[in-house]
Amino acid sequence: MKYIIKKIASLVITLLIISFVTFLAFAVIPGDAAVSKLGMDATPEQVEELREEMGLKGSVMSRYLRWLGNAARGNFGKSYRYDMPVTELISERLGATVGLACVSLVLILVFSVPLSLLSAAKPNGAVDNVLTILTQIGMAIPQFFLGIVLTLVFGILLSWFKTGSYVSPSVDFGGFLSFMILPAISVAIPKMSMMVKYLRDCIVSEKKNDYVRTAKAKGNGEAAILFKHVLKNAVISAITFFAMITAEVLAGSIVVEQVFGIPGLGRLLVNSINNRDFPVVNVIVLYMAALVVIMNTLADISYRIVDPRVSRAD
């Protein structure tokens, strides 16, 4: 219980610091939200008036405190650009990003565990060597290129999956999956490659431990040793790694969203930065920071659950 309170406190402090830094950054970078909204032809009087209206007057500290007060009440302000509440705008986009992330994470998990087992079964064997080359290619290939190639081959030439416009899962779940599969593969392949490589190394080093020799001396076959003894120990070392991948995927991929035309958070973030749409940027940045902290906390908690050596006391 105390642990959870502690973690929540650390989350709040992290978010406070991040939000202030974002605020500061926007005060420092050149460009003015009012100018960008009115266009270049606006008179200085018009700009001043709008700045007043948008709450851009006053010192950074006073503006930050005002924002914080509103945020505490759940009011994150209105987007300058789209003239709608930030929360509404973001929740609309969040669906697409989270949907893409979920499909990608399923792909990463489903493929990386068996592939790494296959690779680690005979270190430096033929399978291991081929997989090592493939994972290297997977990590090195740029995502936009991967996206274009996938669309071309599977979407246009083979017509296996739907390309074109995004469908919300609540409208047509099958259509959503069919549309999402290619972007999800583009997101998943680099992460999957990293995961396979990492997990493979964990398994290989885990196999050198004394308890594996004990397992063999008891009469376990190769497969039983791998599944009953080695895998769980190896996965423990990979938990934090997987948590970081999850945070990254959930934050949205600007490149993949752009290539496939998905109305996700990544695109919104880039556009908002360009438009100096500060309320939107701040909330997205906070969301990403919160993701990292929450994922780390979840990783910590899962260690406590799966590894009896981690003390359950603080």
Partner: peptide, 26 residues
């Protein structure tokens, strides 16, 4: 290997030097 697995642990058993690390920690 299969026949050996049958014998290991049932007819020939081993105890090793490192008691701290020879058991599966999980």
């Amino acid at each position: 290997e299969g026949e050996l697995c049958d014998i290991r642990g049932r007819e020939i058993a081993y105890v090793f030097q490192e008691p701290m690390t020879s058991l599966n920690p999980l």
